[in-house]
């Protein structure tokens, strides 16, 4: 199953199901709730997947700069990425989508920015984990299922970690 978000294509092989979630025509509440780009169900997990592609050759300079500013200031993590995951969770919970209760939810963010190195990805991953937050109050795990793990990748590390979910640039493929 190949899903695309602007210029990024990801081939989610061998999954139970998958969908492009951040789609104004089907979401229905995009005026008040944010959404992750894809929701994927594998045999063992639910994956919320968000794509950020500041290196998109077609990206406007001002949009790229705006993204970099949000990354630098921390608002990308604190506001954008966190809200997308929480709203997506609430939306699905409200619909009583049972797989989300029986399988752990992982939130993966692909930031296609090659200058992000291992140290920076680690730090961003920890900050996102704390902002969601994946652990409940007083450092005690949430009693009901919630987003249990987060991770941030660049394109290189995504490819290394997910050889079965190959990602590529659409404009380079054609």
């Amino acid at each position: 199953m190949v899903l695309e978000e602007n210029d990024i294509l990801i081939d989610f092989k061998h999954v139970v199901k998958g969908e492009k979630f951040d789609d104004d025509s089907t979401h229905g509440l995009s005026h008040c709730m944010k959404a992750v780009d894809f929701i994927i169900e594998t045999d063992t997990k639910i994956l919320f997947v968000e794509i950020k592609d500041p290196q998109n050759p077609k990206a406007q300079i001002k949009d790229k700069n705006k993204f970099l500013e949000s990354l630098q200031s921390g608002t990308l993590i604190r506001n954008s990425l966190t809200t997308k995951a929480r709203d997506t969770f609430l939306y699905r919970l409200g619909l009583n989508a049972l797989p989300y209760i029986s399988k752990p939810i992982h939130y993966y963010v692909l930031i296609n920015l090659e200058t992000l190195d291992g140290a920076q990805l680690l730090n961003l991953t920890d900050r996102l984990r704390a902002a969601i937050p994946t652990i409940g109050p007083n450092n005690v795990p949430w009693k009901n299922p919630f987003i249990s793990e987060c991770a941030i990748f660049n394109l290189k590390t995504w490819k290394e970690q997910f050889p079965y979910f190959q990602a590529c640039r659409k404009s380079e493929k054609n």
Binding site: H106, G118, L121, L122, T125, E149, C150, A151, T157, Q161
Partner: peptide, 10 residues
């Protein structure tokens, strides 16, 4: 460390 962390998360 990043790879170890990803192995743990995934």
């Amino acid at each position: 460390i990043y790879n170890k962390e990803m192995t743990r998360i995934l």
